[in-house]
Amino acid sequence: MTGDSAAGSTPNSISIQSAVKIYGSGADQHVALNGVDVTIERGQFVSIIGPSGCGKSTLLRMIAGLEEPDAGDVSVFGVTPERACVAKMIGLVPQTPALLPWLNVLKNVSMPAKINSAADRRRQRIDGHLQKAKPDMRDLLTKAGLGDAFNKLPAQLSGGMQQRTAIVRAFGVQPDVLLMDEPFSALDEFTREAIQGQLLDIWDEQNTTVVFVTHSVSEAVRLSDKVLVMSARPGRITAEVDITLPRPRSEAMLKTADFHHFEDIIRDHLQTSWQQNALPSVA
């Protein structure tokens, strides 16, 4: 990567071009990502699905600037991931809520605004950036169903409420892109479906780009405009599926035939890539 902007970058999309990531060296070498190309348009909800170890989290961390590709380019709306972080364009929701246990819910979600306060000015200088008003955190918390939990400590919340707090915190900086790494994997099925609905509501209103890593097929179908199917050893994208289901997508839609149709397509892709991987070891 050279300069501030990566090759082939535009202000209207996140683009990853022939990205390679290798862990270890010599005999222990493990190719986490091998020539991955992705383009995510501004405003899209894109899920990445695949078996464990297919590099989906690595891909997400690469967009977040937490990992550097060994080859290839990553651009977040026309700038490098590092510069995107400096301008607070990225909101991260990790697998655990990662809240600060000594702060109550309201203070936790307000914390990002106190950090790196020069970012707002930096953000204005980036081409194509949409200036949006700072959301009212109390308002956003209430929309996420946390209206009576402002003053509660994280340890006093259920797992679902903690994860909703983490989501509101990420939305709070008005990021250009929200990166979510299996945020609901520790929740039970029922809570998970309820939170998916709340996430979609907030997303719809905030109009943010979301990249969502998951290993649940129904979750990917319900949330996404586009699903990227990945396969392991080496990690690569084997299919892109556009989910053309209408929005808003309620919980009732989970039972419809159209919904199952898309689930089947993705399952087929996952199985194909799984079998391709299994073959060499059988022979």
């Binding site: 937490l66 972080c85 655990t96 990662a98 600060l100 914390m111 950090i115």
Partner: peptide, 22 residues
Amino acid sequence: PSQVLQVFTTLHASRLEMLFHV
């Protein structure tokens, strides 16, 4: 915890902010 560090790294928290707030 590493995931807390990751959240604050993507916000580009300075070392001083990291020290005092986290």
